[in-house]
Design a protein around this nucleic acid. Sequence first.
DNA 1: CGCCGTCATCGAAGCGCTTCGACGGGCCTT
DNA 2: AAGGCCCGTCGAAGCGCTTCGATGACGGCG
Lengths: 330, 330
Amino acid sequence: MAGPGRGVTIADVASRAGVAASTVSYVLSGKRSISPETADRVMQAVADLGYHPHAGARSLASRRAGVIAMMLPLRDGMHLPVLMQFASGAVTEARRQDQDVLLMTADEGPAGLARVAASAIVDGLILMDVEVRDPRVEALRRLGLPSVLIGFPADAEGLTCVDLDFAAAGRVCADYLAERGCGEIALLGASEAVYARRTGFAERVREGFLGKRGPSAEVWPCPDDPVSVQRTVKELIAAKPDLAGLAVHNEPAVGHVMHALADAGKLVGEDFHVVVIGPDEVAERTHPQLPSVLVPAETLAETAVRHLMRKLDGLDVPDSTLIEPQLTLR
Amino acid sequence: MAGPGRGVTIADVASRAGVAASTVSYVLSGKRSISPETADRVMQAVADLGYHPHAGARSLASRRAGVIAMMLPLRDGMHLPVLMQFASGAVTEARRQDQDVLLMTADEGPAGLARVAASAIVDGLILMDVEVRDPRVEALRRLGLPSVLIGFPADAEGLTCVDLDFAAAGRVCADYLAERGCGEIALLGASEAVYARRTGFAERVREGFLGKRGPSAEVWPCPDDPVSVQRTVKELIAAKPDLAGLAVHNEPAVGHVMHALADAGKLVGEDFHVVVIGPDEVAERTHPQLPSVLVPAETLAETAVRHLMRKLDGLDVPDSTLIEPQLTLR
DNA sequence: CGCCGTCATCGAAGCGCTTCGACGGGCCTT
DNA sequence: AAGGCCCGTCGAAGCGCTTCGATGACGGCG
């Protein structure tokens, strides 16, 4: 059952290399200078024995676990594929920096944060999908656990936050439509439920979209069931007969919007233009496929991990980082 | 920055409760009997101080990390939402058993397994999306790291595997169609790419579907692009003019299949029946919505975690566990 | 030519926990 | 009434690592 190399300790490596255990430690960590010959011998012994330091012992002695936690909002209506990309990106970047990633779910709540902080099982934490009013944020402040948030809580004072630049995303969409020669444009917004939880980001899209465009641009909120979408689009066209461009920031509604436009006699891609804020799949699943601005999950994750590592190393990081949106044409 | 309760150790708890540190440990682990009065006093001290044992120290002394690893195939074409459900289910079940979950990606490969095994950072491991010929399986055997696999490798000897009972899933679909009075039925299979990697599971569906039905049931493999689906369906109907029921085991093709059937004049839900093997969303996105058998990600994850925990506790578990498929009517 | 600074290395002291053996005091047995 | 047992508790040893201060060896400098 147990293979060879089971239970190889630093002492084994040391004796094989003919040095003290502390020397092995210094070779591995590089915290003191070691002669090249000794270092070589040690590295050889490490390789021969397949030595990996015992994570618990290391964490006990060095007060660094080499693990970061990632708390995901697994339970609610968030877009699962995006979460997965996020997790993937975070793990990949973390491993690049020799860290492991502990997965937590948001339903552990503040108590979960207290637990991981006190047990020193992780060195720091990435909190995803932060809401405007989030009890975990308060707990985080209290615990003093190094952390990076994805999203912006109401009071971001003293916290490190990373997010997509939603205002820029709105602007990019409006600009795209304008460049296509659309005079009158509109933004079909998210459903009420989304706004309720995370006001900030929907508003930022809105502001970016409107910019200084005046009455030629409007924002309409919209539920996401087929019937409401159909009605909203109809009303919108009635209200703005010259409407030539539409940005949709409401994933589930995109398909219905396309139907409604077809029913209204609009030829998307020809006399009418649509752009989506949402995941690629949503924009790819329509006919014709639509240009879109996506939430760059991998980039966000990488940035978050990098920021966290810098914090752990005592370097400083900007309080707030906004990722530039990218428009994908199709 | 650092809140109160920072660095509370077992010694602090012990002195506050007026007992020895070892007594605190025994109260917490229940490994020796302690008088109720003492236990109460200790628990009170624990609560007062917000004590959580240092994970590294615990793992060093007890040779149990309280963490299990989960290796996900994050990089390839797997269905992301299902993976996420899986991760979610695993974390939830693990926490229920006081374990944490470390997330790994398949691209760490066998070396990654060696690393986590040797560093004792985890006690065991769940390997997702195991392929028929998987180098990690071999590594796992060599390492003797307690593990549970999702899926079946070619040689499952001595391993603990969990998966959906795909043969039963095929049978359930065929039975459903038969009950609807369909005399002639067919299974539209997966694309070649899927078969190539994981032969086992596609074949099991096929066998379950065919059962002892003889020539009234057939299996047709099918690529997933719109054109090929259209052609395949057309050929199928030409070959079996009395075809009245179809099972589709090919997620991306489902939408196209519905179009093709409509083109062929079949009224799904009335004179023709379709059932899907795949995620709920795929079956819900069609008109009409279709009955389906899904891969029960949460159940699989829970089962895997429970089996792993039993193994870690030295209890025995079945080598092979097949989860009963569930047909969701719509 | 002897003194001192540097460099490479060693040994020992913990990090916070679990666990093993020991030990005192009741209670049951005879 | 005395011996044995079990129960509840304690103290100490150690898990494998990092880190700090100490120690030789070596060369450069006055």
